[in-house]
């Protein structure tokens, strides 16, 4: 076992543990904070995958914006400081079963898939990921259209969110 593998196992374990806490903790603020921890773990996983840019964007977008939004939403939609009553609905066992089945199914499928043992190629020296990413995102031959569509989506979401949350007098 190499250092990298040990680091991965630790990070993955911590991430999954905090992920479990996200879906199980009674206090929603805690759940949101555990989400932050999970997202941070995923950012570290990105770093392990040599995708530093993705890691940083993960932190900026998810922790800096989405998690904060969640915390705000939790705070804005509660009457008391604490969350009372059941946090899981009556079908939680079915949900758990589905989750376990999903994982089992995915795991079984992954085991039978031939590409699992693939090893990562060395990233060529001098390969500038960010420059390449930027070039592909803005190249008409590559992904400029999805990129633009995503921007339109964000704009629409912004307008929609402002409209929905706007407190009409």
């Amino acid at each position: 076992m190499t250092t990298e593998q040990i680091i991965f196992l630790i990070v993955a374990g911590a991430t999954l543990a905090s992920g479990l806490l996200v879906v199980t903790s009674r206090n929603l603020i805690h759940a949101a904070l555990w989400l932050v921890a999970t997202l941070f773990g995923v950012a570290i996983v990105y770093t392990l995958l040599n995708a530093g840019f993705m890691a940083v964007v993960q932190v900026v977008v998810y922790i800096g914006a989405i998690a904060i939004l969640f915390i705000f939403a939790v705070m804005l939609t509660r009457k008391d400081m604490r969350d009372s009553g059941a946090q899981l609905n009556s079908n939680w066992w079915a949900g758990a079963l589905m989750a376990v089945l999903t994982f089992g199914g995915l795991f079984a499928m992954l085991r039978t898939w031939g590409g699992m043992s693939k090893t990562a190629a060395e990233i060529p020296a001098g390969f500038d990921q960010i420059a390449e990413l930027g070039a592909q995102l803005t190249s008409p031959e590559a992904y400029v259209l999805p990129f633009e569509v995503a921007s339109v989506l964000l704009l629409a979401a912004m307008v929609g969110a402002v409209y929905l949350a706007f407190n009409k007098k």
């Binding site: 999954l16 996200v22 879906v23 999970t38 995923v42 899981l88 949900g95 758990a96 989750a99 994982f103």
Partner: peptide
């Protein structure tokens, strides 16, 4: 896959 399943459980089972 594990993370996905955890998220799925959350999405299926939480009340809030």
């Amino acid at each position: 896959a594990a993370l996905f399943s955890i998220g799925l459980f959350g999405a299926l089972s939480r009340r809030n």
